[in-house]
Design a protein around this nucleic acid. Structure first.
Lengths: 225, 225
DNA sequence: CCCCAATTTCTTACGTCGTAAGGCTGCCTT
DNA sequence: AAGGCAGCCTTACGACGTAAGAAATTGGGG
């Protein structure tokens, strides 16, 4: 094509620019819109040019995780240093991490899809173990704790039911049809459904449920200490 | 092409045959190998023929979930009826569900990817709520419990680190390099790593960790009852 | 039996994706 | 000045999901 006729002074590509463009696309249009050609377009370059800065799509996704986790670790470290016991410190750290995740709805799916461990993810968990150790945890219990928290340690929890608008509507109809087959859920939903009308955020569980579950686990660990 | 010269008596396609073929492919070669052309090949048919029995790939995946959950609900119901309080009953149900998940390593990823609720998934959770209700839970606490359990209710928990062979080897090298930057994890792993050599199953956390976390949550709920 | 209509399957084709292979260009060094 | 190499581009291939419509099969009524 050899466009570029417009005499813009061509900013050179770089891994960082590629990754940031990818994050921007994911933020605005979702992870499935993050495509080589689309990133190229955003950078006024050709898709194949990206391969000079990124080995392949897997490496690209790893890089996106790195960018995300850099932002997350920075925020989390900033929220650090305030007083409190291990439980308060972990709670603060995790809820701060959650803020970042809420800014990037694609992040949970991406993190779960990665098979290679990224240093920044490991580093985040190292700090969590540190907090637990200084709170009197044995290594063994801290290890159990990481498993028990799972993705909640990073501020999210995958929800099997997505209570977003469409899904709820569909499920309402279904529950009406199968009301007699699902007595317990029907009862539960009729009692709960309309109490917190708009606290859910689509992809994620709502904040109150997250905090409830987090505290349940932290308190449980406290008792085993 | 019009092969089929071989006068095999052509078994007609059906939604069920398509779905079962898809499950078989996922079991043997992974979810990413479940492709329209591949399913067709397995059934000696063309890819486009599948569309008469399945609306599109999304519908196909929904159908796979249905097949999976049918197997799961059947197993879970069979394990039912034995004595015990709500906690023992839920434990048994969930660990039975886990058995099915271990047979289908692709199931967690698939379930997390579905945005529409499938009836069989809802039904499974209805029974869980029923167990909790008969154990003295309020609807509100049962609701919290479902959130707290998350995917663990179905017998799995997504692990951020995949402790499979390759990843561990890579991480070992990384931990050696960054040992001073990750003091807590290095300490933890050196104490724990070689105690349970082969209890991990690759995609999933190992059984002991799962049960620890499950009991942590169930005990925590018990205390809130 | 044959014929017709409905059901089921196949053919062809399009647009999208990731990326292999290799060509062009301009700066940096000697 | 010449050569080299870093950076970017062109072209092309083989997957993928699936739209559109043609072909083949099947079952039922003369």
């Amino acid at each position: 094509m050899a466009v570029q006729a417009n005499s813009e002074p061509r900013i050179p590509l770089s891994r960082d620019r590629v990754l940031r463009a990818a994050v921007a696309i994911a933020d605005s249009d979702g992870l499935e819109s993050v495509t080589m050609r689309r990133i190229g377009e955003a950078l006024s370059a050709e898709a194949m040019s990206l391969y000079y800065h990124v080995a392949n799509k897997n490496d690209l996704f790893d890089g996106i995780v790195d960018v995300l986790m850099a932002e997350l670790n920075e925020s989390v470290d900033r929220a650090d240093g305030e007083p409190g016991d291990w439980k308060a410190a972990m709670r603060r750290r995790i809820l701060t991490a959650r803020q970042i995740m809420l800014r990037h709805p694609w992040a949970p799916r991406l993190l779960e899809s990665r098979t290679t461990m990224r240093p920044a993810v490991v580093l985040y968990h190292d700090r969590l173990v540190g907090l637990m150790r200084s709170g009197g945890f044995s290594y063994d219990l801290a290890h159990h704790a990481l498993h028990a928290l799972g993705s909640r340690a990073l501020g999210f929890s995958q929800e099997l039911f997505d209570p977003s608008a469409g899904a709820v509507a569909q499920s309402d109809r279904m529950l009406a049809d199968l009301a007699d087959q699902l007595p317990n859920l029907v009862g539960m939903l009729s009692e709960i459904a309309h109490d917190d009308p708009e606290s859910t955020l689509g992809w994620c569980d709502d904040q109150a449920e997250f905090e409830f579950s987090l505290d349940l686990i932290l308190d449980g660990l406290d008792r085993l200490k």
